[in-house]
């Protein structure tokens, strides 16, 4: 279970709050969707959960299965089960995708006191995962994300998630940049990972993704706060009316 309580975040003390008293709970097995206008703080929230250092947490707490994430390094959070599929995955020239995948998997195993994967075992897992997501093997020989198209990057993020099997997967606009077929393939990939123990936080601008990855809860985020929570029908309502209701309400 992920519990976020009264989270206040700014770049620096005294500057504008990017998250402003945010509360959110995601139960085990739950798929929660967050929708909200540009700049409302969705990516900021995902980065703060994952442990990016650019932000200053002024108040509040984030607990994953009772463990205080805010006291952990990014890699410790990953080991605890956090996975963030980036809105903009980074290109890292010179680091072969395969080398990186192996290092990440083995780091996770080391943390659990397990032996390193043998090369054939590792290859088998990657091959199976890549096939399901329509990722050609050749792509994995290249530098990490280097020269990958927008959609290819997003698929590779999901491949990483499938290999690392987190307890909470945060998908930050994974649907942007995907063509219609890829949207289905990636959604199937995510759905295959759904389980009673694994939860997801799906950040999106478009209701369409939620037809494929059907959420249990939908949250509307505005100016760094969750302003409304509902079921999947809330996404349909937003699709029809936009955010104007909330923007005027919030202003009132």
């Amino acid at each position: 279970m992920l519990e976020i309580r009264n989270l206040h975040v700014a770049i620096e003390e005294g500057t504008k709050k990017l998250l402003n008293g945010l509360n959110l709970t995601i139960r085990d097995g739950e798929v929660a969707a967050i929708m909200g206008p540009n700049g409302s703080g969705k990516s900021t929230l995902s980065y703060v959960i994952a442990g990016k250092e650019d932000y200053k947490v002024l108040d509040g707490e984030i607990l994953l299965d009772g463990k205080n994430l805010l006291e952990m390094e990014p890699d410790e959070r990953a080991a605890a089960g956090v996975f963030l599929a980036f809105q903009y995955p980074l290109e890292i020239p010179g680091v072969a995708t395969m080398t990186f995948l192996k290092a990440a998997l083995n780091a996770q195993r080391k943390g659990r006191g397990e032996d390193e994967l043998t090369t054939p075992d590792f290859m088998r897992r990657v091959k199976a995962g890549a096939e399901k997501l329509g990722i050609p093997q050749d792509m994995l020989k290249r530098g990490l994300n280097v020269g990958f198209s927008g959609g290819e990057k997003k698929r590779t993020e999901i491949l990483q998630m499938a290999l690392l099997k987190p307890s909470i997967g945060i998908l930050d606009e994974t649907d942007s940049g995907l063509d219609i077929d890829a949207l289905k393939i990636v959604s199937e990939g995510v759905n295959a990972l759904r389980s009673a123990k694994r939860s997801f936080l799906v950040i999106t601008h478009y209701q369409r993704l939620l037809n494929y990855i059907v959420p249990d809860t939908v949250h509307i985020m505005l100016k760094g706060k969750i302003v409304r929570t509902g079921g999947k029908e809330l996404a349909l309502e937003l699709e029809a009316n936009g955010y104007s209701d909330y923007v005027t309400n919030a202003a009132a």
């Binding site: 990953a78 956090v82 980074l90 890292i92 290092a103």
Partner: peptide, 26 residues
Amino acid sequence: DEDSLFYLRARGLPKTEAEALMLRAF
């Protein structure tokens, strides 16, 4: 690059290991 390092660490690589991966490439 800090952002690249964060990306690698968010995948579970400890700081020095993430640095080593990038230094090896360098």
